[in-house]
Computed example of a mutant assay.
Amino acid sequence: MAKADGVAVITVGGLQDLLQAIRARGYRVVGPTMQNQAILYDDIESVDDLPRGWTDEQDGGRYRLARRDDEALFGYAVGPQSWKKFLHAPKLRLWTAERSGDNVSVTPEAEPDDRLASIGVRACEMRAIEIQDRVFLGDLYVDPHYETLRARALIVAVNCGQAGGTCFCVSMHAGPRVAQGFDLALTELLDGGEQRFLIETGSEEGRALLEQIPHRPASAVEIEAGDAVVERTASSMGREMRTDDLHELLTSNLEHARWDEVATRCLTCTNCTLVCPTCFCTSVEDVSDLAGERAERWRRWDSCFTMDFSYIHGGSVRASTKSRYRQWMTHKLATWIDQFGSSGCVGCGRCITWCPVGIDLTEEVRAIRGCDAAAEESQ
């Protein structure tokens, strides 16, 4: 963590003041809320909208909310949604065409005007945003909608105080401490019965916001307490995965028997790709009215687990469950590196939690390597 003179302390009331100050600057404020028995990201107006005193219990194919024995506002891991939902929309109209007589006019979709303030962004999610920045902004072809939303975004990150049952961000070097990319970063302290937050600034916008709210410098003891929170989280990951040899391991084992075994369990339901914070595959479809006078082109999230995704004239390139699961896992952990220079996995564990049959990415890697869990942990 930064030196004591670079870290401030705010109270819960100060956090409320921060939300008001952000809104006063014209941002749409989105953060964690409790809906449908899960932690979901939605518009918030005050700290009372946050999941105070709740946590999540996660394992393969299992997610439950449970009461904590304190009033933590960010005392959970991650829910089924990621910030991808707001920056790379599940459904986006690209253009509209209208016919009047013999004339046809095509109108591109207007750029979004939202200024999004994301509250409670975890380290793994911050890393996922950085990965999607590389996908959508880092090449010759730039996604204009993503570019506009990203340029206007404000990020209030939170260092994790609790690891989930399927978390393995430490293995992926993606957490639990937020290292960069944020405007403000919080660490929730609950020791001694006094609830407060360490707050660090990462941008001029973040510094300007901090100056608008009541705060005081953090003491050395509070800095150490914040470090202890993150260290405790890092040492209690629900999963682990060795990563130093993943590229060679997966690309040299494309016919490993484990692909056949996992195919007997995989439902190709696409859950893992939909909850993943970095998956970016889309399809495009055109719709028109019955009179043929108006047509629209829409972009929608898609998944490499569907038969249609790899369809070309004559059939699907990946017709079997085995080939589709292998495509997803080898791309995420290996060939993504060839394509974008980094792994596509941030260790958030969502693909494990939200798989209906509990397929575990880390377990599949161990099986292909031929190690048991104990042997891998000792390496």
Rank of each mutant, 00 (worst) to 15 (best):
99 R>G: 00
320 S>M: 01
252 S>N: 06
210 L>I: 13
78 V>P: 08
213 I>A: 04
72 A>P: 05
238 G>A: 04
304 C>R: 04
182 F>Y: 15
319 A>P: 11
156 V>T: 09
273 T>I: 02
184 L>F: 06
161 G>V: 07
6 G>V: 08
75 G>N: 04
185 A>N: 14
322 K>M: 07
361 L>Y: 01
104 V>H: 03
347 G>S: 05
129 I>M: 09
45 E>R: 12
162 Q>R: 13
153 A>I: 02
241 M>D: 03
340 F>S: 03
146 Y>H: 08
35 Q>P: 04
203 S>P: 04
168 F>E: 06
307 M>Y: 12
26 G>Q: 06
2 A>G: 00
154 L>V: 01
210 L>Y: 14
376 E>Y: 09
175 G>R: 04
333 L>I: 06
100 S>K: 11
207 R>K: 14
292 G>D: 08
234 A>Y: 08
208 A>W: 05
348 C>H: 05
107 T>Y: 06
119 I>K: 00
290 L>G: 11
71 E>N: 14
164 G>P: 06
337 I>W: 07
281 C>P: 12
34 M>H: 12
301 W>G: 01
309 F>W: 10
291 A>F: 09
186 L>V: 05
202 G>N: 01
290 L>R: 12
257 A>Q: 07
346 V>I: 14
160 C>R: 04
223 I>C: 13
146 Y>I: 11
294 R>D: 03
305 F>T: 06
319 A>G: 09
205 E>F: 03
6 G>I: 14
37 Q>P: 02
183 D>W: 02
225 A>M: 13
177 R>T: 03
268 T>F: 05
36 N>G: 15
294 R>C: 13
221 V>R: 08
200 E>L: 09
59 D>S: 15
279 C>L: 11
353 T>S: 13
285 E>F: 15
17 D>P: 02
369 R>D: 01
248 E>I: 11
308 D>T: 15
185 A>Y: 07
324 R>H: 06
205 E>I: 07
272 C>T: 04
199 I>Y: 10
28 R>L: 14
95 W>C: 10
47 V>L: 00
363 E>W: 02
218 A>D: 07
353 T>E: 11
370 G>Y: 10
230 V>A: 08
302 D>M: 09
337 I>A: 00
276 C>A: 08
198 L>Q: 06
111 E>H: 08
259 W>L: 00
365 V>M: 15
267 L>G: 00
299 R>H: 11
22 I>A: 07
317 V>H: 06
89 A>M: 15
305 F>E: 13
193 G>C: 10
290 L>C: 12
30 V>I: 15
261 E>H: 05
185 A>W: 00
52 R>H: 05
92 L>G: 00
288 S>R: 12
58 Q>K: 15
219 S>R: 04
98 E>R: 13
204 E>C: 10
61 G>I: 01
364 E>Y: 01
221 V>M: 02
35 Q>W: 07
50 L>K: 05
27 Y>W: 00
16 Q>K: 14
369 R>N: 05
125 E>F: 02
45 E>K: 13
306 T>V: 02
364 E>R: 00
378 S>G: 07
365 V>S: 13
232 R>F: 08
